[in-house]
Simulated assay, not measured.
Amino acid sequence: MRFHGAIIREQGVTFAVVVVRRHVLDNNFEADKTAASFRQAFPGMPVALMAQDHCGNPTYYGRPDISRFLAGVPLGAIPWREYTLN
């Protein structure tokens, strides 16, 4: 499976952010399950999820400190790349 994500190091914390479809964030159980599945690709790192609405505005799901941080970062400043998870 291919997906878009990024690894970010900020204020001594290294974490991953992964792009998902909006409906994933609408259900906390589904969001938790999805984040857990991406931990295989980013072992030992907290994983935040990001989805965009129809206007392109991002919403983040994950640890509150990480989600708050990401909410203040422009999408273009995040070092997105394509990953593969088998």
Results as ranks from 00 to 15, higher is better:
residue 5 G to H: 00
residue 62 G to M: 01
residue 37 S to G: 07
residue 9 R to S: 15
residue 19 V to G: 02
residue 11 Q to S: 13
residue 42 F to N: 06
residue 35 A to K: 07
residue 50 M to D: 02
residue 30 E to F: 07
residue 3 F to V: 09
residue 37 S to E: 13
residue 54 H to T: 11
residue 43 P to V: 05
residue 29 F to C: 09
residue 10 E to V: 14
residue 69 F to Y: 15
residue 34 T to A: 14
residue 72 G to C: 09
residue 83 Y to K: 00
residue 36 A to S: 04
residue 33 K to I: 07
residue 32 D to K: 13
residue 7 I to V: 15
residue 40 Q to H: 04
residue 30 E to M: 09
residue 23 H to Q: 10
residue 54 H to A: 13
residue 41 A to P: 02
residue 56 G to I: 09
residue 71 A to D: 11
residue 46 P to V: 06
residue 75 L to R: 06
residue 58 P to F: 00
residue 53 D to C: 12
residue 85 L to P: 03
residue 46 P to D: 14
residue 12 G to W: 01
residue 35 A to S: 11
residue 77 A to L: 07
residue 21 R to P: 01
residue 40 Q to L: 06
residue 15 F to L: 03
residue 37 S to P: 03
residue 10 E to F: 12
residue 19 V to L: 14
residue 23 H to L: 10
residue 78 I to N: 00
residue 33 K to M: 08
residue 59 T to N: 04
residue 68 R to T: 15
residue 82 E to L: 05
residue 49 L to Q: 05
residue 43 P to T: 08
residue 79 P to W: 04
residue 70 L to Y: 01
residue 39 R to Q: 15
residue 84 T to R: 10
residue 34 T to L: 07
residue 60 Y to H: 01
residue 59 T to M: 02
residue 8 I to T: 11
residue 57 N to D: 14
residue 38 F to N: 03
residue 18 V to L: 00
residue 3 F to A: 00
residue 42 F to A: 13
residue 72 G to N: 13
residue 2 R to H: 15
residue 30 E to G: 03
residue 2 R to M: 12
residue 63 R to A: 12
residue 80 W to F: 00
residue 64 P to C: 04
residue 52 Q to H: 07
residue 2 R to S: 15
residue 79 P to G: 01
residue 40 Q to Y: 09
residue 20 V to R: 05
residue 17 V to G: 00
residue 62 G to R: 02
residue 12 G to Q: 12
residue 26 D to C: 04
residue 46 P to H: 14
residue 24 V to A: 00
residue 66 I to L: 13
residue 84 T to P: 05
residue 72 G to T: 08
residue 33 K to Q: 05
residue 39 R to L: 03
residue 37 S to D: 10
residue 33 K to F: 05
residue 10 E to A: 13
residue 65 D to Y: 15
residue 36 A to I: 00
residue 48 A to P: 13
residue 84 T to L: 12
residue 51 A to N: 01
residue 77 A to P: 02
residue 53 D to G: 12
residue 38 F to W: 12
residue 66 I to H: 11
residue 74 P to I: 06
residue 26 D to G: 09
residue 30 E to S: 08
residue 77 A to I: 04
residue 41 A to V: 01
residue 38 F to K: 05
residue 21 R to V: 06
residue 45 M to R: 12
residue 65 D to F: 14
residue 66 I to V: 08
residue 80 W to T: 02
residue 20 V to T: 13
residue 86 N to K: 08
residue 77 A to E: 09
residue 19 V to C: 14
residue 71 A to Q: 14
